[in-house]
Design a protein around this nucleic acid. Structure first.
Lengths: 186, 186
DNA sequence: TTTGTTTCGGGACGATCGTTCAGGTACTTT
DNA sequence: AAAGTACCTGAACGATCGTCCCGAAACAAA
C-alpha cells in the first residue's frame, strides 16, 4: 500500500485544500451567502472550473469546508485545554481569553463557524461534522457532573452568539465573572 | 392628525405586512439564502414588482422581517413569563417546555430566528432589533443576580443552537435537568 | 370633474449564477 | 512507446437574479 506517490493526486489534494481555505476566507468576509464557484475560485486564484471539478456541487464544497473547520476548531480547543492543564489552572481565565479573542480579532472566523453550524441545522449530512467539536470537548473533559458540563457548553455558545451582535467585542475582564459562574462547581 | 383614513396607504400597509409574513415563511422553509424578490412575491401571491416597490432593496426586506420577528418573539416571551408567574412557579418547567417546542414543532421558526440573528452580526443596522428580545427579558425579569441572569440567557441560546443540529429534537423531560441547573440559585 | 398622490404590475435589461462539455496537459502504468 | 488515468481550463448554456421603467388603476383633495 503506497501512500501519495502519484504526483497528480498530490497536486489535486493540494488544490482542494487551497480551495477550502479560500472558501473559509470568503465566508469570513461575505458570509455563506457570498460563496459561489466564481468568487471562491477568484479568491483561491484558480479558474472557475477547478472548483466544480474538485467539488461536484456547491453543497459539497460547503460540507468539505465545515468538516475542515470543525477539525481545526477541535485541535485548537485541544491545545487550549492542554495549555490550561499544564498551568494547573481550572481554565476560567483561558476560556475568558479565548472568548474575547473569538469575538474580537477572530470575529469573522467565529461568524463563519456559526453560519456553517446553522447550515448543518438545515442539511442533515452536515450534522456529524458540526457535532464533532462538541464530541471532542465531551471526550476530553472529565465530566463528574454531566449536567453541569452541558450547561457549560451551552453557555459558551450563547455567550459567543450574543457577543457577535454587540457593537464592540467584550473584553476578557468583562467575560470573566460570567465564565467563572459558569465553571463554578456546586 | 388623522390616522389611517387613506384607503391607499391602508392597502399598502396591509400588503407590506403580508410580504413580511411571506418572507418569514420562506426563511423558515429555505433559509435566508432562499429569500429573493420573486420567491417572496410568489409566496405572498403578489407580483414581483410589488416587493421591490414596498421594500427598496432585499436588505430592507430582511431588516423589516427581523424587526417584526423580534417583536413577535418579545411579546411571546412576555406572555410566557406572565403565565409562569400566575402559576406561582419558578418557571423551569415552562422554560423546558418552550425549548422543546422551539426545537420540535417550531423548529423552522427557530432556525429562521437564528439565521436572522447571525445576519445582524454582519449588518450593524439590524443589531438594535436583534438585541430587543434580550432587552425585553432583561427588563422583565428581576435580576437580583446580574451574572446569573446573563448565564441563564446564554444557556438558553446555547441549548437552542445545539438542539438545532440534533437529529431528533430533545423532549422537555430531557431538557429539564439542564434548565433546572441553569435556573438554580446559589 | 380635474388634479395630484399612491399603489399596482407587466415587461425587460444587464449581471451573475451553477453546471456542463470538450479538448488539452501531466503523470502513471503496461 | 502506447495506453490509461487524473487533473486542468476556456467557452458556453440556460436559468435566475436584483432592479428599473412606465403606464394603468385606485383613491384623495381641489
Amino acid at each position: 500500500m503506497k501512500l501519495q506517490v502519484d504526483g497528480r493526486k498530490a497536486r489535486g489534494d493540494k488544490r482542494r485544500a487551497e480551495i477550502i481555505e479560500a472558501t473559509l476566507r470568503v465566508i469570513e468576509r461575505d458570509g455563506v451567502a457570498g460563496v459561489t464557484h466564481r468568487i471562491v475560485a477568484a479568491e483561491a486564484g484558480v479558474p472557475t472550473t477547478s472548483t466544480t471539478y474538485h467539488f461536484s456541487s456547491l453543497d459539497d464544497l460547503l460540507i468539505a469546508t465545515l468538516i475542515s473547520c470543525a477539525r481545526d476548531m477541535a485541535t485548537e480547543v485541544y491545545w487550549m485545554i492542554d495549555r490550561a492543564r499544564s498551568r494547573g489552572s481550572r481554565g476560567a481565565e483561558e476560556v475568558a481569553g479565548l472568548l474575547s479573542e473569538a469575538l474580537g480579532p477572530r470575529r469573522g472566523r467565529t461568524m463563519a463557524e456559526y453560519e456553517l453550524y446553522l447550515l448543518a441545522a438545515r442539511k442533515p449530512e452536515l450534522r456529524p461534522a458540526a457535532r464533532r467539536w462538541l464530541d471532542v470537548l465531551t471526550s476530553m473533559v472529565r465530566h463528574d457532573d454531566e449536567v453541569a458540563f452541558r450547561v457549560f457548553l451551552a453557555g459558551i455558545d450563547g455567550l459567543l452568539i450574543q457577543g457577535l451582535i454587540d457593537d464592540e467585542p467584550p473584553s476578557a475582564e468583562e467575560l470573566r465573572p460570567v465564565v467563572d459562574y459558569l465553571m463554578k462547581p456546586r
